[in-house]
Every structure is written in C-alpha cells, then in structure tokens.
Design a protein around this nucleic acid. Structure first.
Lengths: 192, 192
DNA sequence: TGCTGCGTGGCACTGGGTGCCACTAGCGTC
DNA sequence: GACGCTAGTGGCACCCAGTGCCACGCAGCA
C-alpha cells in the first residue's frame, strides 16, 4: 500500500472511532486520548490528522466546499440566483442511501452539541464566502457588500433549517431544502 | 457600597480590561491571566465572573435577549411577522451615540475573530429560540417546525449582515437593519 | 550500505477551565 | 464584644486541548 493511501486509511479509522464515541457519549465527555486509543493510534497522531477534536466529525468538508463552488460556477446565467444556489446545495448534498445514516449521525452531532455548533461557524464561513462570491459575480457588486453577504448567510440559514427538519422527520433532504428555499425566495408567503 | 454593586463594578472592570487588550492584540494572543492582571483580580476570579474568556466580550447579553423577547411579545398582531421582528431588532439595538464606539469594538471582535465567531453561535442560539417562539405564536405552529426556525435563522442572518455593513460603512445601524430586512421580506427583489 | 522523506510516538509545555479549601469583610444576633 | 452566617476572593492542584521538538522505524533509492 502506498503511503498516501495508508494515511487515508488511518484518517478514516480515526473518523469512525470518533463518530462512534461521540454518538454514545457527549462530545465533551470524550477525550482526544480515548478517540486515539479507539483508533489504535497515539494522541499526537490524532492531532496530525485533525487540527481539532471537532474536525474529526466533519470528514473532508473542504472537498464539499470545492464541489459547491464548482456547481455554482457551472450554473445557467439565466436561472434566478436563489434557484441556482438551491440547486447547488441539493446536488452537493445528494448522498447515496447507504451514506444517509452516517450523514444523520454527523448532522445530529453538529446541530445539537454546543461545542460542535460553535465550531461549525468557522467551517461554514468558507461556504458563505463561496456563495457570496457567486452572488457578486451574478449581480456585479462586491462579494463583501450587503446583498451577496445577506444571500450567503440567509441561504445557509435555509440549508441549516432544512437539515434540522430532515433530522426531525423522515422525508428526503432534497424536499426539505426545496421547501426552505421556496419560503426564502418567496419572502415567506405563509406569513401573510 | 453594597456587595452586589461591588460585584458589578468588578465585572465592569474585567470587561473593560478585556476589550482593551483584545482590541490591541488578537483575542487568542491574550491570556486570561493577562486580563485578570489588567483588571486587578486573580485568574480564578475572572472565571467566576465570566464562564469563558469569550464571554467577557459580550456584556450582559442575556438581558439583551430578554429585552428582545419583551419587544416581540408586545408587537401589534396586525403587523406582518417579519416587520415585527425587524422593529424589535431595531429597538433593542437602539444605542446612544456615546455607546456606539464600544458597540463597534465589540462587534468587530465578534465578527472577525474566529474564536469569537464560533462562540457567538452559542449565544445567538438563545436569540433564535426567542424569535422562533414568536413566529410560532403568530402562525400557530410549533416553534421547532420549519417556518419558525427558518425565520429565526434568516432574520439573524439579516441582522448579522446589517452589522457587517454598519461596521464597514458609516451609516446608521437602523438603516442597515431595515435594508437587510427589506431584502429578506421582499424575496431579494434586486436579484431578479 | 548509506541517504532521504514521511508517518509516527513520546514528552514537555502553554493555556482554558474547574473543584476544593482557606481567608476576609460585612452584617445580624445574642 | 463574641459568635455565626454569607459572599467574594485567592491559591493550588488538576484535567484536557493543542503544539513544538526530537527520536525512531520504514519505505524507496543510489
């Protein structure tokens, strides 16, 4: 086995051990030592693979952001901006059935454990940046101006809410994403 | 001086020392010991007044949430829901001119320092809960269902964006809040 | 055989946060 | 005045996350 592949295997084993331990106890109640032991590596090695304990929950999130960025760049310029963002979110989150239990476990942790909820803000900042840049390209204004930033943060709010609804119910994630984005794009029609 | 008042004075002194140090160096580069020294108290006492180093930046945020809750409860039932939330946000954030420099310093830290950005998520969860309950009362659905949660998270996105715009520009916070809420309530009219 | 690069483990150290105990100051009661 | 009560405080030891440094082992390669 090549060294690069061996590194991936180790990383995956740490990730699996971490998710299992965090699911059976609270995130804060599990030490990095315990995760390392369960994964059969040293504490020092754990922190070589994941910068923080929280990062072990996120898998390869950077790859996720890169895929979102590509989907956004490839959208039809004629399509409304919000629809293009919704479509990109749906496509990027189109998991195979076999992956859904893992996704549920991950999202349940991220949305319910305070420490992970806090950490998520840092990871999602990348998503916000990518979406704001997309909106800025489409509208011709700067990515740090009000509308791009607002659209980025509001669409992420929609995605987060859709994940909450998906976790609480038993429908499809795509349906929940569309429901949330429809509310947003329509200015919350049910509130009138 | 009564003991309760003395406690408030100590708390205020810690807060002032913390803000000053965090402003002149990075948040992470300042230790709790340094803040305690600057405030003339021990490290142990620092953590009796503030649960975490980050909390020293937030002032009495709980009181802020309580005021927001009261404003929301007192809104006119005929007023559109989003407008009532916008009005409540504006009223709760109606600071005197003399307080604005402090607010700027606080928000700049919270929005730019990653550690504080992460911590903010935990504090804002209270705001989200209060807003979602308001929407749930007004619409007759449960506070953890999709629309109340989405409105809570999306309006907070609007408020956050308004704060970013306010920090970057030199207009009034109320104007920026209204601009962001107008976009949200109108389904982002400028994107069409 | 020696060299190089990389993943790893061990170890010591910094810093956030907590539990525990002892001290003190203010205050009411006998 | 002596006694107890309470609240804020300081000091200390401890746990745990995260980091820098060094040494080891193992692959590939000359």
């Amino acid at each position: 086995m090549s060294e690069a592949a061996a590194r991936e295997v180790t990383r995956a084993r740490i990730e699996a051990a971490a998710l299992e331990l965090f699911a059976e106890r609270d995130f804060d109640a599990v030490t990095a030592d315990e995760v390392a032991d369960a994964a059969g590596i040293s504490r020092r090695t754990f922190f070589r693979h994941f910068a923080t304990k929280a990062d072990a929950v996120w898998g390869d999130f950077h790859e996720h952001v890169v895929r979102l960025e590509k989907k956004l760049a490839a959208t039809d310029p004629e399509q409304p901006v919000l629809a293009s963002i919704c479509a990109a979110y749906v496509e990027v989150n189109d998991y195979a059935d076999a992956e859904l239990p893992l996704l549920r476990q991950r999202m349940r942790l991220i949305l319910s454990e305070p420490a992970l909820q806090a950490h998520s803000q840092v990871r999602y900042a990348d998503v916000d940046r990518v979406v704001a840049e997309h909106v800025a390209r489409r509208t011709g204004c700067r990515p740090d101006s009000l509308v791009p930033r607002l659209v980025a943060l509001a669409t992420r709010a929609a995605a987060t809410t859709a994940f909450e609804a998906w976790l609480a119910g038993d429908g499809s994630l795509a349906d929940d994403l569309h429901a949330a984005f429809d509310q947003l794009a329509g200015g919350f029609p049910t509130l009138r």
